[in-house]
């Protein structure tokens, strides 16, 4: 092979680790172990994404996969069961179906362009336009941010709405928790066990090292999230990443100091308003650009003399909206799971 394949070797090794992790997840009967392995799996995939030049995606995956998903899975396990029932009978049929599907997909995949091929169709479509002209048209160096917030602003608005809808669904299914008449408070009195009050959690909260380190870490995590939010035009980052990191910092605080401590700082009402406010800011920027005579989400009209400045302002505002919605959506989902009592 010679020097030809020196590049992908690290990627291949990471992939082998990931496959190993996935097999372990499949085998583990203890769901708690599987949830922790899933966190490792996500962190490995974040490494993989970095190697494939997708730094923005890696950022998101590291915060979401290794942070928030793991907390969500643990929350769900706390409310259901942490042990899987012995093997079901479908094992062999499933294996057969999966092998057949896999072989078919592999056969089809060999007709795809080779890995890293600069002349693959995907590289010749709109990508050259984004890479060549976005500096002129939008005026910010991070092409991912300019595509996300400007060229494909409609998409991102849609995704923000989907995230909002999911949070509304979770709140409707599990209840918003305390702060509402007769919702959370009454449940506590019935002697229901809340996830945040399990004996293990109590012991965690009494650990001095965790409390001290956590207290010192949380402000820096929040500060870092703000940096990621407002530096997203120049480096990797943006509203989605910042929102997830901000929420991860808040959730860490709740895990160490208790749910009620976070609830006192950020009441349910604030969270619910925040979810909608972010999406409203995004939509409002779109409407404002229409009022000024442009199309929906066409930021160029914000500065008639220099459209690139208008673009920059528009991107900053919609990213801010995305950041607010994502932060509060994650916190709302955490509240819904953590505030639910076990029956």
């Amino acid at each position: 092979m010679g020097g030809e394949f020196t590049g992908p070797f690290v990627e291949m090794l990471l992939f082998i680790f990931m496959i190993g992790m996935a097999l372990y997840i499949a085998r583990m009967r203890s769901l708690f172990t599987a949830a922790m392995l899933f966190g490792i799996f996500s962190l490995l995939s974040a490494g993989m994404l970095t190697l494939m030049d997708a730094v923005d995606v890696a950022f998101t995956e590291a915060a979401v996969g290794a942070g928030i998903s793991t907390v969500l899975f643990l929350g769900a396990l706390g409310l259901t069961t942490s042990e899987e029932a012995p093997d079901s009978k479908h094992g062999w049929t499933a294996l057969l179906i999966v092998t057949a599907t896999g072989l078919l997909l592999a056969y089809a995949a060999l007709d795809m362009p080779a890995y890293g091929d600069p002349n693959a169709p995907i590289q010749l479509h709109v990508a050259p336009h984004y890479l060549k002209d976005s500096e002129q048209e939008v005026g910010i160096p991070n092409v991912v941010t300019s595509v996300l917030a400007s060229y494909r602003g409609y998409d991102t608005f849609g995704e923000t709405t989907v995230v909002l809808t999911a949070a509304v669904g979770a709140i409707l299914l599990l209840g918003g928790g305390v702060g509402r008449v007769g919702a959370g408070k009454g449940r506590d009195d019935e002697g229901g066990r809340r996830m945040s009050d399990t004996p293990i959690k109590m012991r965690v909260r009494e650990t001095v090292i965790l409390r001290v380190v956590g207290k010192a870490l949380v402000p820096f995590i929040l500060l870092f999230a703000l940096y990621v939010q407002f530096h997203g035009d120049y480096g990797p980052g943006g509203g989605f990443q910042a929102g997830v990191i901000f929420a991860a910092g808040l959730i860490l605080h709740a895990l160490i100091f208790g749910l009620d401590a976070l609830r006192r700082a950020i009441p349910q009402v604030v969270v619910e308003i925040g979810i909608a406010a972010g999406a409203l800011i995004y939509g409002g920027v779109g409407v404002a650009s229409m009022v000024l005579g442009g199309e929906f989400l066409h930021y160029g009209v914000f500065d008639r003399h220099n459209p690139a400045h208008g673009q920059h302002l528009g991107i900053l505002l919609v990213e801010f909206g995305v950041g607010i919605t994502v932060t509060f959506v994650m916190v709302a989902i955490f509240y819904a799971f953590a505030g639910r009592s076990r029956q």
Partner: peptide, 12 residues
């Protein structure tokens, strides 16, 4: 990038 965040919301 957006799919990951939507994914965690739908998982929830």
């Amino acid at each position: 990038l957006t799919a990951i965040v939507v994914g965690v919301a739908t998982t929830a």
